[in-house]
């Protein structure tokens, strides 16, 4: 049986394979390459936004709707790793209880880990495996903090940025970058006071952020702002339609290829950084590193010089002349 068929047929095999991708990528490099070529039409939807804005609740509501359309849905829910202990509490499943018992749904929680960065490309690999396993929609939930919302743009076909009224909804506090990341903006918790105000403020911000948009420049996508309430299940149908429209937009303007190219470039650079760093670290023991740093400190070597000298001992650093 081909790997792809195994992943289709055997949920435990899929689950274990995902762990290997997460933990020992090198041991499955050949299989990942094989799956990469097993082309798939699956669509990756990124969902990001501040903690507690209702991402998991929205993902659940959206998934229920996609299931009514008979699409198989995989969810990857990423939560932050504690920088102190390296542990994590992965709690997104709490909000996804309603999806239990449905064979057409597969939920996987992931800790950001990321001592070496690399969350985005690990998530990319995971999403690819789930796509190859037959999930027609792969939804990736990440907390919007730091770089992750930028990373997700490269990862997903369609990126939803979720905002909600309440603590920290001050429009001034919404980082400019996060709006640029959005293909679709969702104002969740529409049932709460302040949602209307947030909605119109976001619309204004978006219009100002797209000064080059002209009526006849149809290749430009103007992110819609959708009012929703995951709690009351309103706006979900509209959200699903907006996602469809965005995917059609990518397809009809040949942007899917552009997207793929951008995604591959970002993935290549990320994997390059990660691999180089890992090779360097793998070929040096902690003691050796400590010794080098110790010497540099004692001899008062300027840090960049110390790094250059250290790297000079590696093949990879030699410049070609």
């Amino acid at each position: 049986m081909s790997l792809r068929n195994t992943l289709h047929a055997d949920r435990r095999a899929l689950s274990r394979f995902l762990s290997r991708v997460e933990n020992q990528r090198d041991s499955v490099a050949a299989q990942l390459a094989e799956l990469y070529h097993a082309a798939s039409d699956s669509i990756v939807i990124g969902v990001t936004g501040p903690p507690g804005s209702g991402k998991s609740a929205l993902v659940t509501a959206l998934t229920k709707l996609l299931r009514e359309r008979d699409l198989k849905v995989a969810i990857v829910a990423v939560d932050p790793t504690s920088p102190f202990s390296g542990g994590a509490i992965l709690g997104d499943r709490i909000r996804m209880r309603e999806l239990a018992g449905d064979d057409g749904v597969f939920i996987r929680s992931m800790a950001s880990r990321g001592q070496l960065g690399g969350l985005a490309w690990r998530t990319q690999d995971i999403a690819r495996v789930l796509a190859a396993a037959g999930f027609e929609r792969v939804i990736v939930e990440t907390v919007g903090a730091g770089q992750s919302e930028v990373d997700i743009v490269n990862l997903a076909h369609t990126t939803l940025v979720v905002q909600a009224p309440g603590a920290g909804d001050d429009v001034q506090a919404i980082k400019a970058g996060i709006l640029e990341a959005a293909d679709i903006l969702v104002v969740n918790k529409g049932d709460l006071p302040g949602a209307e105000r947030l909605l119109s403020a976001l619309k204004t911000m978006l219009e100002m952020g797209h000064p080059t948009k002209t009526a006849d420049d149809e290749a430009l996508w103007m992110p819609p702002v959708i009012a929703a309430s995951a709690l009351k299940s309103t706006g979900i149908e509209e959200l699903a339609r907006a996602i469809d429209a965005h995917v059609r937009h990518l397809q009809s303007h040949g942007l899917q290829n552009v997207h793929q190219r951008n995604q591959l470039r970002a993935e290549f650079m990320a994997k390059l950084r990660e691999s180089v760093l890992r090779r360097v670290i793998d070929s040096t023991t902690d003691d050796e590193l400590a010794g080098i740093i110790e010497r540099a400190t004692k001899q008062r070597i300027e840090p960049q010089q110390a790094v250059d000298r250290f790297l000079d001992s590696f093949e990879i650093h030699r410049k070609r002349h």
């Binding site: 542990g87 992965l90 209880r97």
Partner: peptide, 21 residues
């Protein structure tokens, strides 16, 4: 939380889970 602080990744699923879930 204690297990997280001991470096584990803890998936917490919330209340009222059936054995099948």
């Amino acid at each position: 939380r204690g297990l997280r602080d001991a470096g584990m990744e803890v998936i917490y699923t919330g209340l009222r889970q059936t054995p099948a879930m």
